[in-house]
């Protein structure tokens, strides 16, 4: 288990370093995707399928957004560089074959890890709720809060709440920065 996770984290580090040194933005974004999907496999191996599903959704949406933005903003160079189709050559060349093979291999890899992670989970309907049971039984007495949700949110899971508040703060800063028309000098 630790060996597999170490190998995947090594791949993630290589992807992150490649993203920093990539020549064009598109390769950098795709290399960032390696980090995200490697994290998905790590979550699966650490028995956190809910986090893995969230990570898959967020990573895919972010990747699509970023690729769309890059294709839109730098479409001219890309069109000249990548998609020129010479007369007389076939559409099926080495590059397409390599691309499709890579996609199939990595999809198979993700499915393999998914099946492995599902094997070690408890069967459906007999889930282990050690933490939830402890929270429900002792939550009110330990936090003094009658509303159990608030008690967990601000006491047991205080770090999570701080993270949520920070996300909102960062979002506002980003919006204020992007939507500023005047005063750039």
């Amino acid at each position: 288990m630790e060996v597999i996770i170490s190998v995947i984290i090594g791949f993630m580090i290589i992807g992150a370093i490649f993203a920093l040194n990539a020549k064009d933005l598109l390769s950098a974004v795709i290399a960032c995707g390696i980090v995200g999907y490697g994290l998905v496999i790590c979550f699966l191996l650490l028995k956190a399928p809910d986090l893995a599903i969230v990570q898959i959704v967020v990573e895919t949406i972010t990747l699509i957004f970023m690729v769309a933005v890059i294709l839109d903003s730098s479409s001219k160079e890309l069109n000249e560089k990548r998609w020129t189709h010479l007369e007389g050559t076939s559409y099926i060349n080495t590059r397409f074959v390599v691309n499709i093979t890579t996609v199939i291999v990595f999809a198979g890899l993700l499915l393999f890890f998914f099946s492995q992670a599902i094997d070690v989970l408890a069967p459906f309907g007999q889930h282990v709720t050690r933490m939830s049971t402890a929270y429900i039984e002792n939550g009110a007495n330990q936090t003094g809060s009658a509303n159990l949700v608030t008690g967990i949110l601000f006491d047991f899971r205080g770090y999570d709440t701080l993270g949520e508040a920070t996300i909102l703060f960062t979002a506002v800063i980003g919006i204020l920065t992007i939507l500023r028309l005047k005063g750039k000098q």
Binding site: T143, A146, G151, F154, G158
Partner: peptide, 18 residues
């Protein structure tokens, strides 16, 4: 101090966080 569960002023710092 936690106070009595169910009072308005109870639960220690949680209302301040809220």
């Amino acid at each position: 101090p936690k106070g009595i569960i169910g009072d308005l002023i109870s639960a220690g710092v949680i209302p301040l966080y809220n």
